[in-house]
């Protein structure tokens, strides 16, 4: 969830623009994912004002050895601006932006019963056809739906579950 202001996205956009220009998006992506996986203690140390800035910069430099220069530059910038804590969310935002530009949409499919592989594939292909995007779906089971399915692509929800239909029938009768 990219909450906490639009800051992380600004940094992610900047890095992605450089990466696109250099034609090295996957490499940058991998580098950022690695940074996003840094131990929380390391991130905290890099943002700790009790440690002299010079030493933190040196540590950041050492930690990012071998990474593309702009990614190292990003880390140095974040350390200078006391924004190191954002790194995890910058990585998330970067992933989202990459997917968005590649026309990939995330979908959540919730059904009352477990779907088999064929049904899943059929559903995903129908969804890609309807949205015009490559669908990367996650599947979940919720017996409370009683029947049918709930499909959520991005913010858009199509609720074709039996529970929702019974609920709207209830509202119609109550009126």
């Amino acid at each position: 969830m990219a909450l906490g202001g639009s800051g992380p996205r600004r940094y992610a956009e900047a890095v992605l623009d450089i990466a696109t220009a250099e034609g090295a998006v996957p490499a940058y992506h991998a580098a950022l994912e690695q940074l996003g996986g840094l131990a929380p203690s390391t991130v905290r140390m890099l943002g700790d004002p009790g440690v002299p800035l010079e030493r933190r910069l040196q540590a950041a430099d050492a930690a990012t050895k071998g990474q593309p220069d702009p990614v190292r530059g990003l880390v140095a910038l974040l350390v200078r601006r006391h924004r190191m804590a954002l790194i995890g969310r910058i990585t998330d935002a970067f992933t989202q932006l990459v997917e968005q530009r590649a026309g990939i949409a995330r979908a959540r499919v919730t059904t009352a019963v477990e779907l088999d592989g064929a049904a899943r594939d059929a559903l995903v292909s129908r969804l890609s056809h309807a949205t015009g995007k490559t669908i990367r779906a996650t599947f979940a089971v919720d017996p409370d739906l009683l029947g049918g399915a709930r499909l959520q692509v991005g913010d858009h929800l199509v609720d074709a579950s039996l529970r929702a239909r019974l609920h709207s029938l209830l509202q119609q009768l109550a009126r």
């Binding site: 049918g148 959520q152 858009h156 929800l157 199509v158 609720d159 074709a160 929702a164 029938l169």
Partner: peptide, 11 residues
């Protein structure tokens, strides 16, 4: 009863 699935934006 019109049992069409509901479509809405969610948050």
């Amino acid at each position: 009863f019109d049992g069409r699935p509901e479509a809405a934006d969610v948050g």
